[in-house]
């Protein structure tokens, strides 16, 4: 991904600035160093670092500080922490089955990170880490590789029965197997693009409406539209985290029980 896009960007740069908008809706996704101006290297402290660190701090604040009272009757934060725990735990148990509970901490990690990254990205002037394909592809590839390796370790070559639909007529099975393999391989793509695409689209649309607010005639409509989009984005921020998590559970179930 890195190589071919770099080439494309070279072409774009030669072409000059893209678009004549005064207000660039994509500027909010620029990664830049927090201290000084310079090239972004692998270990440079950037706004990515800042917002991911904030997400980690929020996770710690909710899950560790929130539960430090260990009350039998929970306080507010502890209730939320217990709710999140029960929500993800029940999801893993219901979708992946009893033996999927072993992998609950990994799924909880993904869920909490995505939820907090999404919601922190909704703050004004914030940088949305999960709107970058680089981030979501790593998340999705981790799930994809983990689940595939787990399937082969647990079932050996019998894991390939996942693609061999034994309930279909014999004639159709090779065709179905090809379709199943393709849909299996496309999983990480849809898994990652869904999350990043949803967040990027929502944030870009808000910025586009914000650009329209400069025109006096349509600015009230634009402000209303921004408000409505923001409400939708709050919903999307949670739903996308939920969907990412539940799809992870579904893939995990396929790895644990590959038989149709």
């Amino acid at each position: 991904m890195a190589e071919n896009t770099a080439g494309a960007h070279g072409a774009e740069a030669a072409q000059g600035e893209g678009g004549g908008l005064v207000f660039h809706p994509m500027d909010q996704f620029i990664v830049k160093p927090l201290f000084g101006d310079g090239a972004v290297h692998m270990f440079t402290v950037t706004n990515v670092t800042l917002w991911m660190a904030l997400a980690v701090l929020c996770v710690i604040g909710l899950m560790v500080l929130g539960t430090s009272g260990r009350g039998i009757v929970p306080g507010r934060l502890q209730s939320v922490a217990e709710l999140a725990y029960g929500f993800v735990y029940k999801m893993v148990e219901d979708v992946s089955g009893k033996d999927g509970v072993k992998y609950f901490p990994y799924i909880m990690t993904l869920f909490l990170f995505i939820v907090f990254a999404n919601f922190l990205g909704l703050l004004p002037m914030a940088f949305t880490t999960t709107s970058h394909f680089a981030v979501t592809v790593v998340l999705a590839l981790a799930v994809f590789l983990g689940v595939t390796i787990l399937g082969f370790v647990k079932h050996g070559t019998r894991f390939l029965e996942l693609f061999w639909v034994s309930s279909a007529p014999m004639v159709l099975r090779p065709v179905l197997a090809i379709i199943e393999v393709i849909s299996y391989l496309i999983r990480p793509v849809s898994h990652s693009v869904r999350l990043a695409g949803n967040l990027m689209a929502g944030h870009a649309v808000i910025k586009v409406f914000a650009g329209f607010a400069a025109i006096a005639a349509v600015s009230p409509v634009s402000v209303l539209a921004i408000t409505a989009m923001y409400g939708l984005e709050v919903l999307v921020a949670f739903i996308q985290a939920y969907i990412f998590t539940i799809l992870t559970c579904v893939y995990l179930k396929d790895a644990l029980h590959p038989h149709h």
Binding site: E3, H9, G18, F29, V31, M42, V48, V135
Partner: peptide, 16 residues
């Protein structure tokens, strides 16, 4: 301002 999609910029991938 960004040239193209910031999401597709290869320079930032490894940092992220």
């Amino acid at each position: 301002s960004a040239i193209g999609m910031p999401q597709l910029c290869g320079d930032w991938v490894w940092n992220q």
